[in-house]
């Protein structure tokens, strides 16, 4: 059983995932795979009721949805394993290059020891099935550091640490 954390809090999932077998329900907020999206992009983007989210597997690139981001309200990025770090750069591109401001959700093998890196790469939601991670996040313990040697997504809100190190950041 997975637990969804949004902005640090346990949150009931409003979104329905559609994997291609079943029809896209009307009136619901849906997250569709890239395959489903590419079959009927126009119909999905112009639905009248319910928001649209896109789910990208590790092999999918942001380019595939980049042109439609203004009509997409959530992007879910999969971590097929702890060690596959492609989604870090995808989240970063979504925030930095495309100015995507809505939810970026981490799914798959999401572990406590990566949560702070995910946040700093642009994720604000985590769909977690790993029980120790759920326990730790529920206790608001993300095991990250609050000193950073490089500007990342929170760069604008964090303050540079010391004179002479424009790249260093300290969390507020």
């Amino acid at each position: 059983m997975s637990t969804l954390f949004v902005n640090g809090a346990v949150t009931e999932d409003q979104w329905v995932s559609v994997d291609g077998e079943q029809p896209v329900p009307e009136g619901e907020d849906v997250i569709v795979s890239l395959a489903v999206f590419e079959e009927q992009p126009h119909a999905l983007l112009t639905r009248n009721a319910g928001r649209l989210g896109a789910y990208l597997e590790a092999d999918d690139q942001i380019d595939a949805i980049a042109d439609h981001l203004e009509l997409i309200s959530l992007v879910a990025l999969d971590f097929p394993s702890f060690a596959d770090g492609r989604a870090f750069s995808k989240a970063r591109l979504l925030r930095d290059r495309y100015g995507f401001a809505d939810q970026i959700r981490a799914t798959g093998d999401v572990r406590i020891d990566q949560i702070s890196h995910m946040r700093r790469s642009g994720f604000d939601a985590f769909l977690v099935s790993h029980q120790p991670t759920i326990d730790s996040l529920t206790e608001i313990k993300d095991s990250g550091l609050d000193l950073f040697y490089q500007p990342a997504i929170e760069g604008a809100e964090a303050r540079p640490a010391l004179a002479g190190k424009s790249w260093a950041r300290r969390a507020l």
């Binding site: 060690a83 770090g85 870090f88 990566q114 702070s116 040697y149 490089q150 190190k165």
Partner: peptide, 16 residues
Amino acid sequence: EILRQWSTIHPEFLFL
């Protein structure tokens, strides 16, 4: 040294 600092726990590049 500047590269050392920038690359230290760079959140995006720990699982290359």
